[in-house]
């Protein structure tokens, strides 16, 4: 499932030093649970994103392990502290080995 996967992330462009900001992430992915059956009654094999991480300048913010019970197009909202200007890196790990990455820069006024 490498086609049509598009990460979307919402991070404020600026913040004050040490401020807590809210981050929203969404990635388009069908998150096939491995429970569904196709027209012939055969199980459709599982194909999900199994891990999501967010880092700021190399320091971890959140690390999520996903199971098939996470909805299609996995969405996460969480809070992060911004100590200085820098870059957020968001990484999604697919069952098939693909890694999707998105970065956002934020500047501290």
């Amino acid at each position: 499932m490498a086609s049509g996967v598009k990460p979307r992330v919402k991070v404020p462009k600026t913040a004050e030093a040490g401020e807590a900001i809210t981050i929203k992430t969404l990635i388009s992915h069908k998150m096939e649970s491995g429970q569904r059956k196709d027209g012939d009654g055969k199980l459709i094999p599982r194909s999900i994103i199994n891990r999501f991480t967010a880092e700021f300048n190399g320091e971890n913010v959140i690390d999520v392990a996903l199971e098939p019970a996470i909805s299609t197009n996995p969405y996460f909202q969480f809070d992060a502290i911004v100590p200085e200007s820098g870059e957020f890196t968001f990484t999604w790990y697919d069952d098939d080995g693909d890694i999707y990455e998105s970065t956002k820069t934020i500047s501290v006024a």
């Binding site: 900001i21 320091e59 971890n60 913010v61 999520v64 199971e67 019970a69 996470i70 809070d79």
Partner: peptide
């Protein structure tokens, strides 16, 4: 369903 681990910069 999921496991969330919070890092040093989690507010």
């Amino acid at each position: 369903v999921a496991t969330f681990k919070f890092g040093a910069l989690s507010a």
